[in-house]
Simulated assay, not measured.
Amino acid sequence: MAVTVTSREIVRQMLRAGRETDIETFVGLMAPDGYLEWPYRPPGVPARLRGRAEIRRHLTEVANGFVRFDEYCDVVMHETTDPEVVIVEYEAHGTVVPTGAPIQQTVIAVFRVRDGQVLSYRDYINPIPLVEALASITGT
């Protein structure tokens, strides 16, 4: 008998892979033509990455160089009337890698999961902490 993995469990796996900087697991959970999107983002962050190769390339280039998130706190998952859609709220606590400064980020993310793969991951981050962290590194 096949075990069905829920959309909620796929989202848990995706969040864990992101926090642990496990790029291969993260990318493997994406649908081949799935996309990662940041509607609110600091300058220099792309609006959308589509497909596993593009997502892997971006995450590999930026994964350990800028911000490392160590803990996600107050994680709340909201299931919707659409079984494919899961909305997650959480606080991400981490470190600005080049300076060692702490960073706290408020996140609301909307996932669409079908057949165990993430079709879309819209990450509604608060861009202000990232802009401030970038300014602390570049001095601008």
Rank of each mutant, 00 (worst) to 15 (best):
Y72V: 01
M14C: 10
G28P: 04
I10C: 01
E84N: 13
G44R: 08
V110T: 14
H93N: 13
A17D: 07
G139P: 09
G94R: 06
E79A: 09
E9H: 11
D22H: 04
G44Y: 06
P46N: 10
L134Q: 15
Q13R: 15
A53H: 08
V67K: 02
S136L: 02
D22W: 03
A135K: 14
L130I: 10
E24T: 06
G65S: 11
A31W: 01
D74L: 12
V67W: 11
A63S: 15
R56F: 05
V88G: 06
L29E: 00
R52T: 02
T21A: 11
F111K: 00
P98T: 07
G44M: 12
A63N: 11
I137F: 08
E61D: 15
V118L: 03
T21E: 07
V96T: 07
D33R: 11
L119K: 03
A101L: 12
V75T: 15
A63C: 04
Y72F: 15
V113R: 04
A47E: 15
V113M: 05
G94N: 05
R48I: 14
Y124K: 07
I125Y: 04
A47Y: 08
A133M: 07
F66W: 13
A47C: 00
I137N: 09
V88W: 06
Y72A: 12
I108W: 03
L59Y: 13
E20K: 12
V118A: 09
M1R: 11
T95M: 10
P43C: 03
Q104T: 15
R56M: 06
D74G: 09
H78K: 05
